[in-house]
Design a protein around this nucleic acid. Structure first.
Length: 595
RNA sequence: CGGGGUGUAGCUCAGCCUGGUAGAGUGCGAGCUUUGGGAGCUCGAUGUCGCAGGUUCGAAUCCUGUCGCCCCGACCA
């Protein structure tokens, strides 16, 4: 490809709407442009990267025997009503009516469609044991899209669905996908961890997230330093089986109110009253859509909303709004306490650790006032104790007791073992070898194709631009033709043409630009191998061949340049494949799926 | 949804408080010089000041509404 003919609108300025590295660089490199909130066009460079991720995903999915299909993204409400998700999915499902007034949705995922497709054809266990996947645009009406294509409303996803006759075969299908995902992530050059995950709206009881580890990630991973325990913080239990605590003094009656003007935060209360955060009881007012609840945690802890929702038996809980807090507690936000709150809320729940607290400080439900020397007996209501707090660095591993630490991650893919939850609801059944009717055992497996492009940049960039991993890079080799001399132009063309004949994707910067401009753009675009063809080098009989990550920088004769560049590319690919094989060999142990 | 911010040239932003002919840098076009890390000089083109109302002799500026975008949202309880 000749740069002079390419549509690569690079930008010098940092676009003001972008804060994350991948977002900034995708825009600056002319890879994507926003049409509307969370909705992006892919320009040639960005689209090539997307296609490359898709290519690797296809290769690895096909390798497992999965078959590619394409399903509709416009889906009738009827199948969603069958599965119960028309009401269950929430506002992220974009719904609309067609001209006849019938309800439809734009597919955020395809369990319903694929289950419907398969149930019409499956009669016997002999037909089962297959996996269907597609690569397609999805739409989820996210409440808060951000960070460009990392968390968009419209995005491209690979979703696969396995269909088996029994749980054992389904388990093997699941493991096959976990292995494939490890190969995919590794080939794409991504550092990742597979963690146990919540199954959320999709359902099922076994799930792993493939988290691309980066400090800019949205998810928090809890990882054991000693064993292979790895879990999303949403799921992480704070207390192992052996955990106990000595119940605190239940006797109340010693509490007294203290004036704490302006002390809204635990930190402020702690320094105002000269107590530690552990001596403070934090009261969080929640609502679950129907009712309000109060949750109690130690002052230095954070509430885990997912564990809280599970305890309450609801799908989701949210923080109550400021207005609700004022109405229920009778005080400004920051002064809520459990005493006297039992009549205002549906229930009071507390983290297990709170059971050991005594003589603590808590809000007085009166603006600018707290209570001190409070005991559990003062709450005057039944409090349910459970594992509610968020796990943090320094907590113990629930499996081996070793120390755990947390890391941030971007969820690049997730695998779910669904069992029969969809097949039962939607009547996808078959006759087993004994002639009995059974529901199909299903699994579903997603990879955010466009998100992985952004994640790759989050992990691979420097202050000058992108540093593409070889399998994602829109081009593998970037030939910089410097100067206006005919000799350099002819030589650059020759190198470009020969590299293309080798089957490589090559970008030839033949623009009438000064060298500095070309170098800066080359750094920004991040193509892995760079060849500089200038009059100076030709005179000296040595051209510069460099990798974008700086690991290789050589001056070699023009006649050897093509062979050397092609060699570097194939070495990089071989290395990616080799590590993919290695990681795939250990992933089942790593995830605990095999001993 | 709540809170905060922002919208002026392709891009980044100034001007707004205190109303009076629309600005800078960068980019873009032409010319000369320059040519291995975002060149210099000269000349030039570019705006429904997000949109809709209102106040005013007069609105980018003040008022009302609306739309878009960005950031934050137990860690304050």
């Amino acid at each position: 490809m000749r740069y002079s003919k390419a549509f690569i609108p690079t930008m010098r300025h940092v676009p003001k709407e972008a804060t994350m590295a991948s977002h900034v660089l995708l825009i600056r490199s002319g890879s994507v442009r926003m049409l509307s909130k969370g909705i992006y066009s892919y320009l040639p460079l960005g689209w090539r990267a997307v296609e490359n991720v898709a290519r690797v995903v296809r290769e690895e999915m096909d390798r497992t025997g999965a078959q590619e299909i394409l399903m509709p993204f416009v889906q009738p409400a009827s199948i969603w009503q069958e599965s119960g998700r028309w009401d269950g999915f929430g506002p992220e499902l974009l719904r609309f009516k067609n001209r006849e007034g019938a309800d439809y949705a734009i597919g955020p995922t395809h369990e319903e469609v694929v289950t419907d497709l398969v149930r019409r054809e499956i009669r016997s266990y002999k037909q089962l044991g297959f996996n269907l996947y597609q690569i397609q645009t999805k739409y989820r009406d996210e409440p808060r899209p951000r960070a460009g294509i990392l968390r968009g409303r419209e995005f491209i996803m690979k979703d696969a669905y396995s269909f088996d006759a029994d749980a054992e075969a389904a388990q093997r299908s699941y493991e096959g996908m976990v292995v494939a995902y490890a190969r995919i992530m590794t080939r794409l050059g991504l550092e990742f961890r597979a963690v146990q995950a919540d199954t959320g709206a999709i359902g099922g009881d076994l799930s792993h997230e493939f988290q691309v580890t980066t400090p800019s990630g949205e998810d928090v991973l809890v990882l054991c330093d000693k064993c292979s325990y790895a879990v999303n913080v949403e799921m992480a239990p704070a207390y192992g089986d052996g955990w106990t605590c000595t119940p605190g003094e239940a006797q109340g009656g010693t509490s007294s109110e203290v004036h704490t003007p302006g002390a809204h935060t635990v930190e402020e209360v702690s320094s105002f009253l000269g107590v530690t955060a552990q001596d403070i009881l934090k009261t969080v007012v929640l609502h679950d859509g129907d009712h309000h609840h109060a949750a109690l945690v130690r002052g230095d802890r954070e509430l885990n909303l997912l564990k809280t929702a599970r305890l309450l038996g609801v799908r989701e809980v949210f923080l109550a709004g400021d207005e609700d807090v004022r109405r229920l507690t009778g005080a400004d936000v920051g002064f809520a306490g459990p005493c006297g709150l039992e009549k205002k809320v549906e229930s009071i729940i507390a983290d297990r650790e709170v059971e050991g607290m005594a003589g603590f400080v808590c809000g007085a439900n009166r603006t600018d006032h707290h209570l001190k020397d409070v005991h559990l007996g003062d709450i005057g209501a039944d409090v349910r104790f459970a594992d509610l707090r968020k796990v943090t660095d320094g907590d113990g591993c629930p499996r081996c007791g070793g120390p755990i630490h947390t890391e941030k991650g971007i969820e690049g893919g997730q695998t779910f073992y669904l069992g029969t939850i969809y097949s039962e609801k939607m009547d996808a059944t078959f006759l087993d070898s004994g002639g009995k009717s059974r529901a199909v055992e299903m699994g579903c497996y997603g990879i955010g194709i466009t998100r992985l492009v952004a994640a790759a940049i989050e992990q691979h960039h420097d202050e000058n631009g992108i540093v593409w991993p070889i399998e994602v890079a829109p081009y593998q080799v970037h030939v910089l033709q410097l100067g206006a001399g005919e000799q350099a132009a002819a030589e650059a063309e020759r190198i470009h043409d020969e590299l293309e004949r080798e089957g490589l994707d090559v970008l030839l910067d033949d623009r009438k630009e000064r060298p500095g401009v070309k170098f800066f753009d080359a750094d920004l675009l991040g193509i892995p191998v760079r060849i500089v063809v200038g009059e100076k080098g030709l005179k000296q009989g040595a051209l510069e061949v460099k990798t974008r990550d700086g690991s290789i920088s050589e001056s070699i004769p023009p006649s050897d340049v093509v062979g050397r560049a092609a060699g570097i590319v194939s070495d990089l690919r071989d290395e990616a494949l080799r590590s993919a094989g290695e990681r795939a060999g250990s992933i089942l142990k790593e995830t605990g799926l095999q001993k």
